[in-house]
Design a binder for these strands. Structure first.
Lengths: 104, 104
DNA sequence: AAAATACATAAGAATCGACTTATCTATTCC
DNA sequence: GGAATAGATAAGTCGATTCTTATGTATTTT
């Protein structure tokens, strides 16, 4: 849930791919596995990392788990980016303001 | 320089700390090492990773190297974030537009 | 020119991360 | 109830990362 967990989670290409897939809507674990040359447990472990980072959430539906992106999950990354006022001043400052507005 | 390199670079807490330090202005390698319980080569290696990811740039000044944040270094991360239209639709769509404006 | 300083590179050790197979639980289907 | 399905967890392997010490290369200082 910390920014450290998030950056670590995003460092893996498979997990980024899963997130992009989830950005198209809810998926269960089997659907998340499609196209990945990887065992079921491996996928399950990646899911656990994404959940641990607060980037996804789940809902049990029978014997399936429906995963979806957690809307605020990326917020710490945005917050972290806003600390770069020293070198990216205008762009980031405006980004910060924009996101604050949107939260209301 | 790819988004993969950047996320990997950001996954390490020491490197994030260095970036935050650099966001306060230029530093040389010795200054970047201050407060870190780590050998000089370790710091040098972290610097190499940040440079490889395109997040910092350097300028030789005598026997010192002055490091600074590379202004566009984080752009691929922002671009990646904008791909999340599916789950963060309004927020990201507006962000994308904003950044496009800023580039002009 | 010799010594000191700033940094990079090389090589190896230790730890971490991403996988595997095996197994477990919960649910659904017959 | 028994077999099949969806997914999680356990334990171990292997390669990648992050350190270390040793050494190399400029540059500056004396």
């Amino acid at each position: 849930m910390s920014e450290a967990d998030i950056f670590k989670a995003l460092a893996d290409p498979t997990r980024r791919q899963m997130l992009e897939r989830l950005s198209g809507g809810e998926r269960n674990a089997t659907e998340l596995r499609e196209g990945l040359a990887m065992s079921q447990p491996a996928v399950s472990q990646h899911i656990a990392v994404l959940r641990g980072a607060g980037l996804i959430e789940e809902e049990k539906s029978g014997r399936q788990m429906r995963y979806r992106i957690r809307p605020d999950g990326m917020a710490p990354v945005v917050d972290w980016l806003t600390r770069y006022r020293g070198f990216w001043p205008e762009r980031v400052e405006r980004l910060k303001t924009l996101l604050r507005e949107m939260d209301q």
